[in-house]
Simulated scan of single mutants.
Amino acid sequence: MSTTMNKITRDSLMTLEAYAKARPEFRKQVLEHKKLRTVAVGNHVTLIFEDELTVRYQIQEMLRIEKTFEERGILDELEAYNPLVPDGRNFKATMMIEYPEVAERKEALQRLKGIEHKVWVQVEGSPKVYAIADEDLERSNDTKTSAVHFMRFELTDEMAAALKYGVTLSVGVDHPMYSQAVSPLPIEVRNALVKDLA
Rank of each mutant, 00 (worst) to 15 (best):
E107I: 00
E107Q: 12
E107M: 00
L109K: 04
Q110M: 08
R111L: 04
L112R: 12
K113T: 04
G114P: 05
I115V: 11
E116F: 00
H117L: 04
V119Y: 06
W120K: 04
V123I: 02
E124A: 14
G125E: 11
G125A: 09
S126D: 03
P127E: 06
P127R: 11
V129C: 09
V129H: 13
Y130I: 08
I132M: 13
A133R: 14
D134V: 06
D134W: 06
E135F: 10
D136V: 15
D136I: 15
D136T: 15
L137I: 01
E138A: 08
E138Q: 10
E138M: 12
S140Q: 13
T143L: 14
K144S: 13
T145C: 10
A147C: 03
V148D: 03
H149L: 05
M151G: 07
M151D: 02
M151F: 08
F153S: 08
E154Q: 15
T156I: 05
T156S: 13
E158S: 00
E158I: 02
E158Y: 00
E158P: 01
M159C: 01
M159L: 00
A160R: 04
A161M: 00
L163K: 05
L163F: 03
K164E: 00
Y165I: 04
Y165S: 12
L169E: 06
V171P: 10
G172Q: 06
V173N: 12
P176I: 03
P176K: 15
M177Q: 15
Y178P: 07
Y178N: 11
Q180T: 07
